[in-house]
Design a protein around this nucleic acid. Structure first.
Lengths: 241, 241
DNA sequence: CGATATTTTGACATACCTCAATGGCGGTGG
DNA sequence: CCACCGCCATTGAGGTATGTCAAAATATCG
């Protein structure tokens, strides 16, 4: 089921079977993408939107000196470039991190569907505002937390999001980011990320290896990262107080 | 005209007179707020949305130790809490910086209007995605630029946004943020902001005084802050290449 | 199995923070 | 209208988290 993970585990997800069907019927292609492939470039006009079915993707911006800043990470169920539907063009690049499977929907079709079904339109709008809420949390993370806490925070976030779509096994989940990537999401160098990860490992909080993260002490990690999942708008049953 | 500045100067602003009228008719109150007043608290259920008519507002989040991180600044024409319409509750606080005038619209009314007029709905959606685009730029600014460039960047952004609504006089515009506030938007301490502002002044780029900013060398400031206004989605006539 | 990307480690540099004190400006009340 | 008070800006000295550069060790991929 293509829309299986869309808004899964979110509060107010009232996506009816009918609406899910409307979305499915809007899909014009399902494709497999290799790791490290760019699918949208900043400034380019976007004519379709991409729903991530499997794998990890990211959105990023480049500084003049070529340094990269990630502005979002995406997990299955996310529309990675739905912002391009109302905006028409994107201000950033979108790329895969791991190999991915995606479904695409033409914008014309989304226009029809949203004009016809205002409630579905509101759900799509809602999903883009979840991105915005995560953006805000990232501003907070980078602006106010130190390196150790930033890393703790993004790991908690990813764990919570994957848990919501049933892709965790206790504290273990796929995490295909390199330490370089992690640095680019946290505003740090890969060298410093490496040292901080060593500390988290030594303190018995998390281990990263083989593109897999294992959280050994979630409460401690959440405390350290000042992580409160309210901004993810999850169902109460998925939240940890 | 209450909606005068809404999406003013934005590419694809096709807000018709009729649509503007529908929005105006949705207003249930126009109010004046004092400076430094909080109007929405994180977690609270939001039942109306607020259009800023005059003054400067902000959205922010607090760290455990009480440090504050601004996540958005708002100028006239912005819906400061429209995210609360699809999200129902907000993950951050919303407050005034200067004294402000605002118009409020009940969510029930917005639901009616957007269900009836899908095109207007798309414009409202668009406006929330402008916020998201600015959020991304803030992530980039804080994650990748040094202190001097961060300050240059936010000043360029504010100048461009105020210029779009006709509230600049050449390089001069109202800027009611204290150096403390500026630090909270850039992830810096007020002491360091002070030193950086002194440098920008000495280099003949900007002066801040009396809640007023004066940009003396915009090209240099843009270069320094790596500022490219593409993410503001302005009409071509308002852009500087 | 070689080639390449990623992680790890060390030594050193620096941008930014912290603490603390002083000075200035604006707003308020008498 | 002046004087005071409080917020805000400014300056200095010293500390620290994080960056830079470089090399070695290890994992991954074809």
């Amino acid at each position: 089921m293509i829309t299986e993970n869309f808004l899964k585990g979110r509060r107010r997800r009232e996506l009816t079977d009918f609406e899910a069907g409307q979305l499915e019927a809007s899909v014009d292609a399902v494709r497999d993408l290799p790791a490290r492939a760019t699918i949208v470039t900043a400034g380019e006009v976007v004519r379709e939107s991409t729903l991530l079915l499997a794998g990890t993707m990211c959105r990023y911006m480049d500084a003049r000196d070529g340094q990269r800043q990630l502005v979002a990470l995406h997990v299955p169920g996310d529309f990675v470039d739905l912002h391009g539907f109302p905006l028409q063009r994107l201000d950033h690049d979108v790329a895969t991190i791991s190999a991915c499977r995606v479904a695409t929907m033409p914008h014309e079709r989304l226009t029809e569907v949203t004009e016809r079904w205002p409630h579905l339109a509101r759900l799509l709008w809602f999903s883009t505002l979840l991105d915005a809420a995560m953006h805000r949390e990232w501003i907070f993370r980078i602006g106010r937390l130190n390196a150790l806490a930033r890393i703790a925070h993004i790991l908690c976030e990813t764990h919570a999001r994957l848990q919501a779509i049933g892709q965790t096994d206790g504290g273990t989940f796929e995490f295909p980011l390199t330490q370089q990537d992690l640095g680019e999401t946290c505003g740090l160098t890969s060298v410093h990320v490496n040292r901080m990860l060593a500390r988290l490992r030594a303190d018995g909080m998390v281990r990263l290896a083989n593109r897999t993260a294992t959280i050994d002490d979630l409460p401690a990690l959440r405390r350290l990262g000042e992580f409160d999942d309210a901004y993810l708008y999850l169902e109460d049953s998925l939240r940890t107080p």
